[in-house]
Nucleic acid binder design. Structure first.
Lengths: 226, 226
DNA sequence: CTTCGACGATCAGGATCTTCATTGTTTCGC
DNA sequence: GCGAAACAATGAAGATCCTGATCGTCGAAG
């Protein structure tokens, strides 16, 4: 798997390259926009990681030219916190995902892997049930088209429930997946987390999707997306 | 590496066994105290994991008999939240470490690895400088013999500083080690964390150990333990 | 049908960690 | 030396998550 990183900030670039290399990828690194574009056009990359702020030619410029020349490479955008609004523009131009700096490397790697798994197709991986949607890449949840903000744990929990919708998930499973915990229980984090999730995702809507199965665990009802 | 787990609670036992097996260890599992003791005495284990609460013979009983028969196997105790005071007793009897349920598997694995690395010696690994001590196994910090409670992040930060005492650690390094972050900075978590750590560890004591090196990072002064 | 016990839901309080705004301090060019 | 800019320290507010207590509800036994 060959990945191109276009990043001018030396530390960040080196850091990402090293991390990806250690993870077994072949990595090229360009320090400015024009170099990046040339490499992107000449090499055959499975993924391109673009910083938005770049000297000579910025991330959008590269992306735009790239897409115009018919390349469909998956693109992961890196944007700074105060440029978050750029993401809209980036996604419109055909970026496949974005990540806000500063970020954890583990998260970066997860996104990279997801993008590679998807290959070059543009369809987003989205989990659904009834009128509930979870967009894995953009880490976004909507219900009836209405955006819902979830915290990390809430998202992880909902993702698990949706991935295995229709199945009753025992607490022990939820604990190990979402909390990495070995549960002799003695704590009710799960109940509390389910509560918080319901407040945001189920309470204001119909139908109710998260169901408690007494003595067993929780299910997210599988229903045809409406 | 051969590990014995003595745990009656089925879920927990299976969970631990599976995890350790996947991590490449050879694992035996006993469901009650007597079985556990027999195995412990007959097999040649590199590590024994003991639940405190057990049918027929509890964790201490096993440990006691084991030590009396001259075995020096490293022992990791598992204790429930409300039995925390047991740990004192356990450690006195010669347990090498304890872990409070419920715990994250990743933490469990880390402890197991540390114990195995130490081999069968009983000396605790402790990091020191001047009158500051950090006990890696018991996750405990003292200064001038006085116990200091640290949070997870605080502990991780201090551990890093102590492991590399005398070295100036750049923020980027600290960020990647303690936060798993790629720092284009734009945040000052590190400064804040250092602050909190200083309040607990340095402010009330002399000499001051955590020094800021402008433009570079932070050092923890290396001084002979007093 | 009623009662009791187990299980889950809910709420408040608190610990931890992060962000943001402000203030303080050092450094360097003039 | 002076002043500005960079860098760090600080304080406070806010977000998230966990704990513990209490309340409610379901279901089985009588």
């Amino acid at each position: 798997m060959k990945i191109l990183i276009v990043e001018d900030e030396v530390k960040t670039g080196d850091y990402l390259r090293q991390g990806l290399t250690e993870a077994g990828f072949v990595v090229d690194l360009a320090r400015d926009g024009l170099d990046g574009l040339h490499l992107a056009l000449s090499g055959d990359y499975d993924l391109i990681v673009l910083d938005v702020m770049l000297p000579s030619l910025d991330g959008w410029g590269i992306l735009q030219t790239l897409r115009r020349s018919g390349r469909e490479n998956p693109v992961l955008f890196l944007t700074a916190r105060d440029q978050i609004e750029d993401r809209v523009r980036g996604l419109e131009l055909g970026a496949d995902d974005y990540l806000v700096k500063p970020f954890a490397f583990s998260e970066f790697l997860a996104r990279v892997r997801t993008l590679l798994r998807r290959g070059r197709s543009h369809e987003p991986d989205t989990l659904r049930s009834a009128n509930l949607e979870l967009d894995l890449l953009r880490r976004r949840v909507t219900r009836c088209g209405q955006r819902i903000d979830l915290t990390a744990k809430e998202f992880a929990l909902l993702e698990l429930l949706l991935r295995r919708k229709g199945e009753v998930l025992p607490r022990s499973l939820i604990a190990s997946q979402v909390w990495d915990m070995n549960f002799d229980s003695d704590t009710n984090v799960i109940e509390v987390a389910v509560r918080r999730l319901r407040v945001k995702v189920d309470d204001p809507f119909e139908p109710k999707l998260i169901r408690t199965v007494r003595g067993m665990g929780y299910v997210l009802e599988a229903m045809e997306p409406s």
